[in-house]
Nucleic acid binder design. Structure first.
Lengths: 345, 345
DNA sequence: GTGAAAGCGCTAACAG
DNA sequence: CTGTTAGCGCTTTCAC
C-alpha cells in the first residue's frame, strides 16, 4: 500500500488539512516550522499525492487526448501524422500537460465511444483530420467537452479548428502551372470527408477560372484513400489520346502525387517532361522522390502546436469562444514541374 | 455538473450498489427487470462512470506510459521511434489500454520526476532506449512500479527488457564484409549509454576475431549523437593514408551510416567503390539512400509490441517475473557494399 | 494558525 | 435479490 497523505499527517503530528496546504503551497498559510517538518516527512517516506484522488476533487487531469482517424493504419509512422503529433507534444510539454493517444478505432466506433471520451480521463481532445460532419465531435461539444480539430474546418459547428489555407495553397500551385504554360490540367482529389480536400479542389477550380481556362469535367477525379485505385485512375487519365491528355496533375496531397508519379512512370511517361505533377503538404519524403516534388508547404508542426495551445486555453478558461485559425502556406518549387513539351493546342 | 451514479440510483428508484452492479455486470446478480429499468435511465441521462473515481477504488487506470529519451528532439518524427510507437499502439489497442506519452524531459529531469511516474496515473511504463544504468528505472522498480525497457538490456536490474540480438546482427554484417574480401574495417560506435550500442561493437570485434583479423585500435571510434561530430570523425578516418584507410565502415546504426556516407562522398570517395558502408536497424529511409544501404533488420514494431504485451501481462499478474526477450535479426543486403577495389595489402 | 469533518464519484463489504 | 454504509486519497469548508 502506497503512503498517503494521512500517513504523512500522522507521522508529522498535524492534520491532513495542513499537509494538503503544505503540498499545494496554499491556499492557506502554514507556519514555516510546521511546513518544514511536514516536508521532511514527505521526503523521508517518499510520499506522492495520488493522481486519481486529485482529479476527483479538482476535476482536472492535466491530460488531453489526441484522436487519430482509423483509416490510417500506423499514424505515427506516417509522414503527415508524425509532424502533427510532434507539434502537439511541443505545446503539451511547454505547458506541462500529458498527452493520451486514441487510435485504432473507426469513426463509427468512435461515435459509439463518446463514453470513453466523457469519463473525465482527459480535460479535452484534439481531433486530427476528422470527417467534417463527425457526429462524435458535435456530440462531445454539446456535452461540454472541449474539442479542437486539426486539418478540418468547423463549418457550422462551434468548435475550435486549426487548418492551413487550402484554397490559397491550391490556387498558388495551380497558377504556377498555368504560368509555365500548362492549359490542360487534371485534379486528383483525395477522400472527400475532411474539409481540406474539397477546399483544395475549390482552389484549383478558382485558379483555372481566373485564368479563363476551361476545366474538363472528367479531369477532376476523386481517387480516394486507396493507392491502388489512385494508381489506376491516374493511368487512365494519362492514357487518354494526346489531344485530351492533361500536361499537368494537381494532386490533393503528396501521397497522391507519389502514386501519380509512379503511375506516370509505369506508362513510360517522363515527369516532368511528359507530365508535370504537384502535391500538397510538403511531407518529408517529397524531396527524396525522383524527381523531387513541387508542392505546397503547410506548417504542420506549428499548426498542430497552435491547436493544442488553443485547446489548453479553452480548458484553462483563458478564452471561452473556440475560434478558427488559418495558417498560411507557400510554394515549394522542385523538379517535378516544367513547361509542357508543346504549348497545348 | 455531470450526471453521477447517485442520480441514476435516485432516478430509477434503486440503491447506488444496484446501479454499480448493473454497470459492471456483476459481481452480484440483478433482477432483469431492475437491470433494464436502470439501463434505460442510464441511456436517457447519458450517464458515464467517472474514470477518476473508478481508478481511486480499483487502483487501475488501464493506461500505461511510454517514456522517450530527451536526446531525441521529435521522437514521433524519427525513423526509429515511429515504428516503436506503432508497435506499442498495436498491443495497446488490442488489449484496450490507453497510451500516455512522456517526452521532452531529460533523463536527469526524469530522475527528478520519479514522482510523476508514481502518482498512479499509469499502471506501468515502457522506457524506450533508456541509459542502461538509469537510476530512474531502478528506483521505479524498487517502488513496485511495473517497468519494461525497449532496446536496452536489463543487466543486473530485474526489470523486463526487450531487445534484438545486437551481437549476432553485428557479427552477421561484419562477416558479410569479410567474406567480400574486406580486411581493414572500421567501427563507428554510437552513444554508449544504452546497451545496444556496445553490444554491436562486441559483435564486430567478435567477427573480426573469429576471422583472425587484427582490429586497429584507432579504427573503433565513438561518434556520439551529434551528426556533425560523426561527419568529422568519419572524414578523419577516411582521410588516412591509403595503407591505413579502412575499406569498409560498420556503423552502429543507420543514422550514423547515413552521415558516414555523406562524409565519404564529401571526400570524393565512392560508396561502395572506395568504401563500403553498412548500418543497423533497417529504418525506412535506408532504401532511399543512394546507394541504398546494406543493413541489419531488427523487427522494431513486433519487438515493441512484445514489450507492451509483457508490461500488460505484468500488470495483470499473468506473469510475475519480468523476463528478457531477444528478437532475431537478419541481413538486408543492398548496394552500399561491394568487394574492396584492391584486396587489402 | 490549525483541526475536524464533509464530501468528490465510485465499489464492495455488511446486513437484511 | 437489494439497500446501507464505509471507505479509496484528496481538498476545502467550517469551526476554533
Amino acid at each position: 500500500m502506497a503512503v498517503t497523505l494521512k500517513h504523512i499527517a500522522k507521522a508529522s503530528g498535524v492534520s491532513t488539512a495542513t499537509v494538503s496546504y503544505v503540498i499545494n503551497d496554499g491556499p492557506r498559510p502554514v507556519l514555516p516550522a510546521t511546513r518544514e517538518r511536514v516536508q521532511r516527512v514527505i521526503a523521508e517516506l517518499g510520499y506522492q499525492p495520488n493522481a486519481a484522488a486529485r482529479s476527483l476533487m479538482r476535476k482536472r487531469t492535466h491530460t488531453f487526448g489526441v484522436v487519430f482517424p482509423h483509416v490510417v493504419e500506423a499514424p505515427m509512422d506516417n509522414a503527415y501524422f508524425a509532424p502533427v503529433l510532434t507539434g502537439i507534444l511541443d505545446a503539451a510539454t511547454a505547458r506541462r500537460q500529458i498527452v493520451m493517444l486514441f487510435t485504432g478505432m473507426s469513426w463509427e466506433d468512435a461515435e459509439r465511444s463518446v463514453p470513453l471520451f466523457s469519463d473525465g480521463r482527459c480535460d479535452g481532445f484534439l481531433f486530427v483530420a476528422p470527417p467534417a460532419n463527425s457526429g462524435l465531435v458535435a456530440r462531445l461539444h454539446k456535452n461540454g467537452t472541449k474539442v479542437v480539430m486539426i486539418g478540418t474546418r468547423a463549418l457550422e459547428l462551434p468548435v475550435g479548428a486549426v487548418d492551413s489555407d487550402n484554397v490559397r495553397g491550391s490556387m498558388l500551385i495551380t497558377q504556377s502551372l498555368i504560368e509555365q504554360g500548362h492549359r490542360k490540367i487534371a485534379m486528383l482529389q483525395g477522400h472527400l470527408t475532411s474539409t481540406s480536400t474539397p477546399e483544395r479542389t475549390v482552389g484549383f477550380l478558382k485558379a483555372m477560372n481566373d485564368a479563363g481556362l476551361q476545366v474538363d469535367a472528367d479531369l477532376v477525379l476523386p481517387v480516394g484513400y486507396d493507392s491502388k485505385q489512385c494508381f489506376e485512375t491516374t493511368r487512365k487519365v494519362l492514357g487518354l489520346p494526346e489531344s485530351r491528355r492533361p500536361t499537368a496533375l494537381v494532386c490533393a496531397h503528396d501521397s497522391i502525387a507519389l502514386t501519380a508519379m509512379e503511375a506516370a512512370q509505369s506508362l513510360g511517361l517522363e515527369v516532368p517532361g511528359d507530365v508535370s505533377v504537384v502535391g500538397f503538404d510538403n511531407l518529408s519524403f517529397t524531396q527524396q522522390l525522383s524527381p523531387p516534388l513541387t508542392t505546397v508547404e503547410q506548417p504542420l508542426r506549428k499548426l498542430s502546436a497552435a491547436a493544442a495551445s488553443m485547446l489548453l486555453d479553452l480548458i484553462d478558461g483563458l478564452i471561452d469562444k473556440p475560434s478558427e485559425l488559418l495558417f498560411d502556406v507557400h510554394l515549394v518549387v522542385r523538379s517535378s514541374t516544367s513547361p509542357p513539351r508543346r504549348a497545348a493546342e
